[in-house]
Design a binder for these strands. Structure first.
Lengths: 209, 209, 209, 209
DNA sequence: AATGAATGAGGATTCATTCAT
DNA sequence: TATGAATGAATCCTCATTCAT
């Protein structure tokens, strides 16, 4: 048993050459955008710069993305997919899924991602400025909370009457704990992370109010 | 005994007419900026728009603020001053300052501010984009944490060996709880707030790790 | 035998329509810039004014020129190319290339250009303000000196041991003689020109120091 | 016998305190302007910067100078006065005033000034952009030529029928020789200066055409 | 005489996006 | 599908100068 698939995209089989060429350009664009965002922040991202770095004409960018913002959104989607994949894995791998174990596994998974991919941090934190990204992020946090809630109740880690909203709050809090831990220290402040996990686990372990 | 003064500006007495006119313009500019930020976000703020809405020439804006960003910074300063004032009051008014009581008072004070001034929410949350504002906000959270830590230890609400970093984490968490509570509901989701207070108080009440 | 080609751009054959339209706009921009410079000097040149006079949006100007200064530079390049072309011709046409004859031919060629194109004078003189233009002009004077030196030595007009630096100085002096002759009189003061030629030729004819 | 006074300002005796204070401010302004010009060029000079550096309000600048340009003009006047003073001295000190000696003394005097005061070079060269400064410089060169012509004819160094225009041309040429010598080398290229003197002296020594 | 405040006009440059080809 | 070219609108910010006090 594991976390429900939160986010998915079916991409089966072969593609026509034209599509393949498109894919490559899209990938180039996204990679360029990611690099620029890491270098200068989300706010400073410009279509020109992305296109130039990607080696495609600016106009081509608009073949694949209706608005500049959609590029950022695509990046966020990539990231959330990767995050979901790892979260599902990590939670499924738990031997005894206590609340504390799940919280720790969740936080540590994200920490691993953050440490591997610095772009993740920037996009995740700064990207939240744009309404679309913000909305996406919120929705994603909501979906994560739902999945964790379901898993927790199913696996007995969480009392059956735990309201979804509590898990939702826990997820949001974890988000901030992570932000805080990484804001002080690009490698993530371990002490902060440990205490954060305590706080959230402690909260979820309490008898439901 | 109360919270140490975190932030202050003494502005006593009369002013010369010229200065008074200046003050008015500055106020007009800040008000305009505040409104525009609430309407369209911090990122979309432009000097042109501010000046136009304030009814002053753009050039005048630059008499009082060296850079656009300084306008936002001034807004943040206004807000933090008001927040500090109220926090000091609220904490001082507590009869029996238990951890739980202090946390509740703190959160509720900010909630009151948020409810009174919607601009506060937007600026506080989105403003954090700009490096200067971000730094200011971080520093302010740090100062709040220090003040609360000192007060907690002095008043016996907090065990004497509570590390400052725990209070710092608590403040950050409270920040996010508030953000979360107000993101769903412009009036602030009460259930979220109540649980958030529980979580933070629970965390601070634990025996120190 | 003649002056070495100092500056050249081959632009052969047809162009696609789009490119042709571009060319026209570029020409319009350069023409507008030229006129404005003649009217108000190089320092007063503004992108706005150029664009307006050229009948193109300001933004279009930046399609063809990365910086305002590049417009002036392009003008200078046009002029130097024309100058080089005529100088090569004039010198090649000399029957008996004595020093005096070469100096006279050189000065008279430039005089001809100045008289035909008043913009030349202004850009050539005032343009030297901007670092880029100044550098270009210096380099160009250097190249002219080199070409004349080579020609003079090859043709026997100049003693073989004449140092390049003497010709360099002669070119600079000629530059100023021209400036002076045209500053008093937009048509060029003939008396000054005649004497200037004498001075420079006399200098170059002396036995090398 | 010496060069006629070319440029003068009578400044006798005491001044009222108010005037004295004014003088100080004017001096502060001019000094500030000079420094800024040396640092960033004439074109970049701004009233704000001058006033700030001088420690006077911008508006005060307009009490003493009608236009920004007049500040630069005042600088040029200071410089020309100093130059005239030294030139008169240097020429008067000549034992046997041959043409060659006068030319050399003149050039060397200016070279001395240039070497002592870097601001001189910048203002003298770049300042010529502005019409007013240009006109002033031209007029001054004319006055120098007149004085030298008179001196040369009176002292027998120059044939009595030497036209003024020849000396005028010589002065202009010397100006450029100096410019050229200092453009290559901030200390002034000695070889260029020596040859320049030769060229000009050779020109003036010729039998009048 | 002195000056803090005010400002209209303009500075260069960039933007996301569209469109004709 | 792909793209070079085009652009209206906007960006922040600076300027020399004036004026009320």
């Amino acid at each position: 048993m594991g976390l429900a698939r939160v986010n998915g995209e079916s991409s089966t089989g072969r593609r026509a050459p034209a599509q393949q060429r498109s894919r490559e350009k899209v990938r180039a664009i996204l990679t360029a955008a990611r690099e620029l965002i890491v270098a200068s922040g989300v706010e400073a991202l410009s279509t020109r710069a992305v296109a130039e770095r990607a080696g495609v004409p600016v106009a081509s960018l608009y073949q694949y993305f209706a608005h500049k913002q959609d590029v950022v959104l695509a990046l966020v989607e990539q990231d959330t997919q990767e995050m979901d994949r790892r979260l599902a894995e990590a939670v499924a791998a738990l031997e005894r899924p206590t609340v504390r174990a799940v919280v720790r596994a969740t936080v540590e998974t994200v920490v691993g991602l953050y440490r591997e991919r610095p772009a993740f941090v920037v996009i995740w934190c700064q990207g939240r400025m744009s309404p679309a990204v913000l909305e996406y992020t919120r929705a994603h946090n909501g979906r994560i909370a739902e999945a964790l809630h379901a898993f927790g109740v199913d696996s007995g880690a969480l009392p059956p009457d735990t309201p979804l909203s509590s898990v939702r709050l826990a997820v949001e809090t974890a988000d901030r704990v992570l932000e805080f831990a990484f804001e002080k220290d690009l490698a993530g402040d371990d002490q902060v992370l440990r205490e954060g996990i305590e706080m959230i686990a402690g909260y979820l372990e309490r008898p439901t109010p």
